[in-house]
Design a binder for these strands. Structure first.
Length: 907
RNA sequence: GGGCAAUUAGCUCAGCUGGUUAGAGCGCCACAUUGACAUUGUGGAGGUCACAAGUUCGAAUCUUGUAUUGCCCACCA
């Protein structure tokens, strides 16, 4: 017999081990004819601990996977980890600085040694993560675990780089980049965060003009003033005019530029430009072919051009520069506390400095990728593609747009498609080089002015490899397919990438993947980039569905952050305390895709209670079997329907409906509502009514049968407890629940009438209970039931035992012919139900209250009638005699409806 | 500045294309309790569904507007 309470600690680990050892996680143990179903696990960063975000991701994906597996699909879930270049390098450097007191580990250790250290660190945290993923119950195929730095993945990353370079999609050039002086690297646009700060805003005299700035320290090299061509105030100045201006370090010769990028409303409508340190200025300079000069060094200090200020940090120099200009009489005004946004590094937290640097970029607008384009696409910023069949050359941007627009890829929730399109419209070339050491090194070599790009190093002496590495997202954007590449084939340098893919059975079978499940916060970083890289490299979409989950927040809606340990909920603590199943449910139910949700311990405890309830319900079933001396495992067939009690038939019916609903819910990725349905079925129906009604008259075969169904249906949500219970109630021949088949519905087990009748009995019992409580009736008191319908009378009589036990009242007399209570409402219904009252307590008001249910039925009846006629759907749904397109009849019908509405109100 | 969303019970949230008396969990109140389960059962209190106008026989649900909150993107020299 089972223990009195479910103990997840004593159960989960050995169950996981059993699954893993049985090979159930591998697609090879699925039906070889099954439809392939793949998920690539978003690789957690190899920087340490699993957090709630990962836990949600694992829970969701495990539900998808287990459901698909039970449906007989060939399921593959590929686990892995990400080397997370910048994040990991930063963590390790900080660690070394702290633990070994080395101020600058990069300098002291050098590239090779530092990379070794990072590798060691990554190994340790990878194994930590592996165990944590197991704790969540994730049924992924560990034999196919991948890591973004695996040789095979390094190969594909490099191959694709070289290919893109050869096609001109990757180029190297001087461009404006987001430079992080603290981490000494560039960042992609998406790695920049903006912070609103209040800083003084200065206006200076510059020749005949007044110009405003919040960054006087960049102004040393300014020798162009820009204004809008239509600005009437500056009509007398022509494009190209020059003038002398007294400036910070003496007189400069400046040129007038007219450009439409200027906002006439802002400030004086004139500005000087600093093309080297500002995105807009860079573009203006580009348009007019202006000179660019660097003012601030990559270390964040002023360069020689700053004269006496050179070598100073910006914060020191700024007030001094202003002071000097003021002394020269050039300061016109200064507004304290002007609000503006400053660019901050999301990686290191320091201020970013726009800089011009020689970097590697992906051109998102070059039309070089063959892609099937069956339909014309016209969207903001994209050209209309000609109609036609077959493939045509498209730019990466166009492909990104097309695959979502044409629903090759579906995003859940749908509204994120808008966000996605909006992002594409503003997408600029992607800077993929990073000046850090940890990561895939850029496969380019230089010798003097020569450059070589290739998978293998060039022949000959004197070549030096580019010291930069690739943006993490570049490599990991190939994740869905590079993880399916056969590592042995990838070793063979004679094979081309195309041949490797052709000869990798996993890729051929399991790609494109079915679902990509991840947080909406990395839709741009990663999801979009996966589409970009994968369509380019393989000619396939990476996944068919994108399911985006929201952030998990604290009870009061704050973000959980490491800096505030009180707000953090550690998934492992919660598993230790409440079990993985409870944690999973608490994160899934009540969480709708794309929306943030809040998590707190009481919630998890609530689901722990549910798990325990299920456990005890199973205990009860087993107990009944034991008492009846029946071995639950030997139960196979159900008795004839005619031999079953009302409750048994109703329970079978309800479980059939449940199978249908849960299947539909899971297929449409509606996990929250489906979870709730299961919860309420188990607790509110199975435990509260069916098991109660079974006491004394238990039919073990039906009990076991329904319980087995519930366990199967619940297994994707709470795999551990269901698997454990399964071992007690499964049919002898069956194996582990994880590999069991999803239940199918059987029409012959449907019995809507039995279900309705039971519902009626439940209603009656509830009403009696309520009346008893309100009137404070002692147990054993009699109840009289007045009926309008003979059928109901029979029903009540047949359930008298249950009413006696559950409502503590005896059904004494049935008066099948007391029609005197008829009211106007009853004219609508042919089969009016039950009234009841308590003997000696007959109170017309109470009676009326108990009648309200019938009125509700009546209202429903009428309302269903009116729905059919509601004008919006009139033509579709109205009864035939009312349609025929005749307006008079429509008006008549509407009038009828008005009357019905009126009567309803009277009721 | 552009976009996306949210506002329902004390708290956390459901409520699909308009249709029974607006639901659940937690919390609260009362009662119960000796064989599935105190990680329990039964009953109850608690909501002018942010506000206003409109469409409709009928609106939490649709339309428009207002207010508040949150997020994303762009970025102001």
């Amino acid at each position: 017999m089972l223990e009195k309470a479910y103990d997840p600690k004593a159960t989960e680990d050995h169950i996981y081990k059993m699954w893993e050892q049985s090979g159930a996680f591998k697609p090879e143990s699925c039906d070889p004819k099954g439809e392939p179903f793949t998920i690539s696990m978003p690789p957690p960063n190899a920087t340490g601990q699993l957090h709630l975000g990962h836990a949600v991701m694992l829970a969701l994906e495990d539900i998808f996977i287990r459901f698909a597996r039970m449906q007989g699909k060939r399921v593959l879930w590929v686990p892995g980890t990400d080397h997370a270049s910048i994040a990991t390098e930063a963590v390790v450097i900080r660690k070394i600085q702290k633990e070994e007191k080395i101020a600058d580990p990069r300098k002291t250790l050098g590239r090779e040694k530092l990379v070794m250290r990072i590798k060691q660190f990554v190994e340790e945290s990878r194994s930590t993560i592996r165990n944590q993923v197991r704790k969540m119950g994730a049924s992924c195929d560990w034999s196919r675990e991948r890591y973004t730095m695996d040789p095979a993945l390094a190969r594909t990353t490099t191959e694709v780089f070289v290919d893109m370079y050869k096609k001109g999609v990757i180029y190297r050039g001087f461009r404006m980049v987001n430079w992080d002086p603290k981490l000494q690297t560039t960042l992609s646009d998406d790695e920049v965060v903006y912070e609103t700060r209040s800083e003084p805003f200065y206006t200076f005299q510059y020749g005949p003009f007044q110009i405003s700035t919040s960054r006087p320290e960049t102004k040393f090299g300014d020798k162009y003033v820009v204004m809008h061509p239509k600005d009437a105030r500056y009509k007398k100045y022509k494009h190209g005019d020059t003038f002398e201006a007294e400036w910070i370090n003496g007189p400069v010769r400046a040129t007038v530029i007219k450009d439409e990028a200027i906002d006439m409303e802002f400030g004086t409508g004139v500005m000087t430009i600093t093309p080297w340190h500002d995105h807009t200025d860079f573009e203006i300079a580009g348009r007019h072919g202006l000179e660019k000069e660097q003012v601030i060094g990559f270390d964040g200090k002023l360069l020689e051009i700053a004269g006496e200020f050179s070598g100073m940090k910006i914060e020191e120099a700024r007030p001094l520069i202003v002071e000097k200009l003021e002394k020269k009489g050039l300061l016109v005004s200064m507004v304290q506390a002007q609000e503006h946004n400053v660019a901050i590094s999301s990686r290191g937290g320091g201020l970013l400095e726009p800089q011009i640097k020689l970097q590697w970029f992906i051109d998102v607008n070059k039309e070089v990728v063959p892609w099937p384009s069956p339909l014309p696409v016209r969207q903001a910023g994209l050209a209309l593609l000609p109609k036609g069949e077959g493939k045509r050359l498209m730019s990466l941007k166009q492909i990104l747009h097309s695959v979502v627009h044409h629903k090759d890829i579906e995003i859940i929730p749908e509204r994120f498609e808008k966000t996605y399109f909006h992002w594409i419209d503003h997408l600029r070339d992607w800077c993929i080089s990073r000046q850090i050491w940890w990561g895939h090194r850029i496969p380019a070599w230089y010798r003097g002015s020569e450059m070589y790009v290739g998978v293998t190093p060039p022949e000959g002496d004197g070549w030096e490899q580019d010291s930069d590495t690739l943006d993490t997202w570049y490599g990991v954007s190939q994740w869905t397919w590079s993880t399916l590449v056969d590592p042995e084939k990838a070793k063979d340098s004679k094979l081309s990438l195309e041949q490797i893919l052709e000869q990798s059975p996993d890729f051929q079978t399991f790609h494109p993947t079915a679902v990509m499940e991840t947080g909406y916060d990395i839709l741009f970083f990663w999801v979009a980039r996966m589409i970009l890289m994968t369509t380019y490299a393989t000619g396939q979409i990476p996944f068919k569905t994108v399911y985006l989950h929201g952030l998990i927040r604290t009870r009061d809606g704050r973000k959980m952050s490491k800096s505030d340990p009180d707000t953090m909920i550690d998934p492992l603590d919660m598993i230790a305390k409440y079990g993985a199943d409870a944690l999973r449910l608490s994160m899934i139910v009540g969480q709708s895709p794309g929306a943030d949700s809040r998590l707190y311990e009481e919630k998890i405890a609530g689901y722990r209670n549910f798990i325990n309830k299920l456990w005890n319900a199973s205990r009860f079933v087993l107990l009944q079997c034991e008492q009846a001396k029946i071995d639950p495992q030997s139960i196979e067939k159900l008795p004839e329907a005619a031999l079953l009690s009302l409750a048994d038939q109703a329970a079978l019916h309800a479980s059939e409906i449940l199978v249908e609903e849960v299947t539909k819910g899971l297929e449409s990725y509606d996990l929250s509502a489906t979870g709730e349905k299961l919860y309420s079925f188990v607790w509110d129906f199975f435990c509260d009514w069916y098991l109660e009604l079974s006491k004394g008259t238990a039919n073990c075969a039906v009990l076991v049968h329904v319980l087995r169904r519930v366990l199967r249906l619940l297994h994707p949500y709470c795999p551990f407890v269901t698997e454990e219970l399964w071992s007690s109630v499964r049919p002898k021949a069956a194996g582990a629940l994880i590999s069991e088949r999803w239940p199918t519905t059987k029409q012959e087990r449907r019995n809507q009438k039995a279900f309705d009748d039971l519902q009626r009995v439940i209603d009656i019992i509830s009403t009696i209970r309520r009346l008893r409580a309100e009137q404070n009736v002692e147990a054993g008191k009699k109840v009289s039931v007045f009926l309008f319908s003979k059928k109901c009378a029979e029903l009540l009589l047949s359930q008298a035992e249950h009413i006696k036990r559950l409502a503590h009242l005896e059904v004494l007399s049935i008066d099948a012919k007391s029609g005197q209570q008829k009211n106007s409402a009853s004219a609508f219904l042919s089969d009016i139900e039950v009234h009841l009252s308590l003997e000696g307590l007959f109170d017309p008001a109470k009676l009326k209250e108990s009648l309200s249910r019938e009125q509700a039925d009546l209202t429903k009846y009428v309302q269903i009638q009116t729905t059919k006629l509601s004008n919006k759907n009139f033509v579709d749904r109205a009864p035939k005699e009312l349609v025929k397109g005749e307006k008079a009849k429509l008006a008549e019908a509407k009038e009828k409806l008005g009357k019905i509405g009126e009567r309803l109100r009277q009721l």
